[in-house]
Nucleic acid binder design. Structure first.
Lengths: 202, 202, 202, 202
DNA sequence: GATGAATGAGGCTTCATTCAT
DNA sequence: CATGAATGAAGCCTCATTCAT
């Protein structure tokens, strides 16, 4: 218990540095093994006791949230860039969806807790999700206003669809073309645009 | 064949009965608790030892595969009915996608192993998946031939998309409109059909 | 997980023998360390995996109950002997209380779960407790009928008091005379019998 | 002493204030949750670091001892009142025992460390216990001198018995009559006063 | 073929205690 | 002196899988 080898005790490093280090390790770990890997293993790899990990991040979701927050800034920057540089609201929405799609594909298994957070609200990830939905709504609204996007579509649906697409991409998608196919499906659907008359020759 | 010893036949009968019973129990169990519950619990509920379960189905996927195969007949019947009764290839594809969507939503969590089976091929579920893809291709080909479906779309993509939609539906989707929204998204996409000219203001 | 070193796998011994062995080990362990020792440690000492211990005894109380059941027979024999051989109902009650007192002092800390079981009823120990109360009531009733025991006293109180006395005895009672003192206190109280007149000088 | 630096005095004052606050919080905490709760939780609730708690009270027993010492004054007052106002030594002893019984029931689980302290002597609670024993001896001696209490009884036994009774009362004693029953048992015992002859009708 | 006992790694979590700052 | 991050042993429990009977 308390009588741990005192000599071996890791010097108290700067808390922030430690936290950062854990995050780095977790990032790598999740990248390799997906987000369901053991937290203890992360602690071990980071060279800290499980209690330390627990102190910083009381559960997997909290760790995940912290991890994603760091990446958030990147995405935020991308969002700003799109809004600033892409004047075409259709292209803007497309690019935003792609950026978001990449983001939620960061780790294998990530879409699952995000989906859960979307509906449960109690998760630390809920805020992140909400932000995504809101931003998507912004882009979508512009596209709809310009007649580029179907009026019935909601931002939330697009986010969920993006999650689903990322989920489908999964860990190892042997078929490289599928990811794009799904994105494209989400964009144009499988149905040919309804022209006034029926198909050419039934 | 016919002259098999009575004892052997009796055994076979028992074994078959056992297998069937396990499947029934598993079906109920998975329906209630999702597909990630403990196999031991299923064995216990079925009144057999875990070894027996294991003998029939060496792992969770095998059990799942057998379970789905049993349900297959229902879906197969639906497929036949669609092909026989629905002459419009677009409606046929739509109905098939819906049927498939319901099917892969049978148990909470089912889309995950199905996706895995789609890419790994070694899974006992792979065959099932392949059957879906093939059937989807059939319907899709007809719709494409009639000009109802975009030519670039592949059966595999539609199946994967159906899986993704089922995944998004998930266990508890508070927002009831989302499932339909996703299906519709998959069908028509978010983008407005490209008319000849661009939107009012590019 | 499942890929445990197969060669080292302990041969499946007779289940009963194994169970008995665990009980023996637990008995010794609890005797040494009190009943709050780690169950994992018991498993380890018994040379079985924690799962095995858990299979036989799903929790500490169950293990305890099994352990006590074995001792129960001994106590039961003692009860029968007292009832058969001790004609004096006062002596009989006294002896029974002593026997019970020894029984509940079997392990350090045992009185705690027994007390809990007495009030909660859901514990596997509840039955045991109830049996004690009932038997105590039998002896007590006889003593009361013969005018040896105060009418207001209830069997349940005597059992609880016996528990409390055992608790007080605790692990290490340096003062050897205290246990007896408490028993005697429970028997005669601290107050001098109320004679007709008050004391000599108030 | 008087010429101590102002800074030092300020520190001392702060420290004292801190200590007092911790005690208040601990009192409430133990009252709510029993004495086995986590010390960290107390520190947190008190708004100090665990190190601070530890500095003031090197372990749970020390904290408890300090806590009880604070409550001691109340009991002490009660003792004085009894000694001053209750002239009947029997009533005095009774009242003291009751006061003490209430005192040791202050927190759920308190009797355990007190018992330990009684036998181990090294505990910070030992002094408190010793005080109780001594006071009990005083009251008891008077009662014995007046012929109200049995000569063989010792103060220590009465204290231990009081502890045991408090333990039996425990957290949730469904049966409301038991506590009183035990107290009364301790007072008069279960046995009818030994008259010269045997019982009325054997 | 059926059984179900056994396995045991490994997940999560808690918390008394230390000690750098 | 106060702080609170860090420690890490240790507890509990689960469950896929094996294999003697």
């Amino acid at each position: 218990m308390g009588e741990a080898a005192a000599g071996e005790r890791r010097q108290r490093t700067d808390k922030q540095r430690n936290r950062t280090h854990i995050l780095e390790v977790a990032e790598q770990f999740f990248t390799e093994q997906g987000i369901t890997g053991s937290l203890d293993a992360i602690a071990k790899r980071a060279g800290v006791g499980p209690g330390t990990l627990y102190r910083h991040f009381p559960n997997r979701e909290a760790l995940l949230a912290a991890l994603l927050q760091a990446r958030d800034e990147e995405l935020e920057a991308r969002r700003v860039a799109i809004q600033r540089e892409v004047t075409d609201s259709r292209a803007a929405l497309t690019q935003w969806l792609q950026a978001m799609g990449e983001w939620v594909s960061a780790f294998d298994g990530l879409p699952d807790p995000l989906r859960a957070a979307l509906t449960e609200g109690t998760s630390p990830l809920a805020l992140t999700c909400q932000g995504f939905v809101t931003t998507t709504e912004d882009f979508l609204r512009a596209a709809q206003r310009d007649g580029y996007a179907n009026p019935g579509v909601r931002g939330r649906d697009l986010f969920l669809s993006t999650l689903a697409t990322a989920w489908a991409r999964g860990a190892a998608m042997a078929d490289e073309s599928s990811p794009d196919a799904l994105v494209s499906l989400m964009r144009t659907g499988w149905e040919t645009p309804a022209s006034d008359e029926g198909p050419s020759a039934p």
